[in-house]
Amino acid sequence: MALTISCPNCGKRNGYEFRYGGEDKGPRPAEEGLTPQSWCDYVHMNNCVAGIQKEWWCHKNGCGAWFTIFRNTLTNLEVEEPEAKL
């Protein structure tokens, strides 16, 4: 396996220049009304999809940007954004 990631600023680069930042879970929820369960769900829980997931990456040893990509966890290859299912 030899991961490559496409940075919006720097283009397709060696995956080791980047840092994985987790599944895309959306913005931080408002603090009001959070229960331990809902907070834990946001902070710790993952979907662990065997297939395509939207996820965050940081171009750590490059421009420093955080961005999202779609990647197939079964092949470790980046993919186009899948069309939304109707």
Partner: peptide, 12 residues
């Protein structure tokens, strides 16, 4: 640190 701060403000 830079990554950390940018990460926690990435949606904003």
């Amino acid at each position: 640190t830079v990554e950390w701060i940018r990460f926690h403000t990435r949606y904003d």
